[in-house]
Design a protein around this nucleic acid. Structure first.
Lengths: 201, 201
DNA sequence: TCGAAGTTCTAGTGATCGTTCGGTTTTTCC
DNA sequence: GGAAAAACCGAACGATCACTAGAACTTCGA
């Protein structure tokens, strides 16, 4: 991989092209899996050749990191904005889940890759920051659930299990969600919330 | 791979050894992922050598199929026994989820592999029967939910979404479940059911 | 129009992949 | 104890893997 161009205008074009490469990689990784995808597959998906592809990335694993970053950074930023607003915990929870499920629509491939290659990310020390992002999001959720009970606006038979169930439900969504399906993303998010706190909120 | 011994006693020993090989493969696949695991990894995990390993399996993919079969066949059998008993649908559902979650404890590695390599199984025509088994189990669950509403013992805001949520919750369980953890498998199963039908059963 | 910067291509590299096969050791059974 | 069956070994095989070097082409500013 060469360094990106210094000229700002050219840099913008470089970034745009690189984003196309990452998006194509996300599509193929989501379909075939990261390890099952060869550079040849990526070459065909991008329309480039080997050398051209390596002009934009340092290696196959850099693509995986880029995909995870593109997923988690905007989600985390959005999440922090939500909980920064003064509001009761149940409102925060609803907005968090809606933003999260909305990501299924916006970045379905990214989420599928992130879930599918979880074990890769969990083990490699190079990808500690991806692990930290996931952990940060889950802790943010856990805090909201805990605060909800303290504020009296949420109640769970078992808060820990409720968190795990929520993570399971939402993270499983990209496996079956189809655009123009029967339910849109806010209906799905609200449906999950109804299940999670049918007895409280 | 050579054919298994004809002699029944020797055949039993052969099968036992082969089961050990499959179990070792499940452990490594669950940790590293199917494609990321090399035959060298499996050789080290089994304590055999390349030739010895291929005495029991026809190839790497046969191990994946064996793992999925070991998971789905007993689960499906158990599920059919449960719904064959005369009982209301809510009872069937509870027993189904309990049996299912119990599989997390019994075959955690198998479940992790089955979930992680879902995309492999979904695409390859050789593994149609594994897909059919998964589909059969999900349809069995769907039938119980539908019957529960018809019988008036279950009620869901959205039955389709409830099924998807249940699949997400349970299939996500092996990601966080630890033996000797705070909750045992029936507590987990009942917790899921409380979430799923807090307003009905 | 010319040189520089940026982009893409071609033709490979060594390493590692899953797998094979002839041979050796161990076990079984009469 | 001896022959046959079974279990296991390990040095290879060809294929494919991720990746690279260097040249060719394109785009851009002056």
């Amino acid at each position: 991989m060469s360094s990106p161009p210094a000229n700002p205008a050219l840099r913008a074009r470089y970034d745009r092209r690189r984003a196309q490469v990452v998006a194509a990689a996300a599509r193929v990784f989501a379909e075939r899996g990261y390890h099952a995808t060869s550079m040849q597959d990526l070459i065909e998906a991008t329309g480039l050749t080997a050398g051209g592809l390596y002009h934009y990335i340092s290696g196959k694993d850099a693509l995986l990191v880029a995909i995870c970053d593109e997923l988690m950074e905007p989600l985390l930023e959005q999440a922090h904005e939500i909980v920064a607003e003064p509001a009761p915990a149940d409102v925060h929870l609803r907005e968090l889940v809606r933003a999260w499920v909305a990501h299924v629509e916006r970045s379905r491939d990214h989420m599928l890759v992130f879930m599918q290659e979880r074990h890769v990310l969990e083990r490699d020390p190079r990808w500690r920051h991806v692990r930290r992002q996931r952990k940060e999001f889950e802790e943010l959720l856990a805090d909201v659930l805990e605060r909800g009970e303290r504020e009296g606006v949420l109640r769970f038979a078992d808060r820990g299990l409720a968190l795990r169930a929520l993570l399971g439900m939402v993270n499983h969504t990209p496996q079956w969600y189809r655009p123009n399906g029967r339910l849109n993303v806010s209906e799905i998010a609200d449906g999950y919330l109804d299940l999670l706190c049918a007895s409280s909120c």
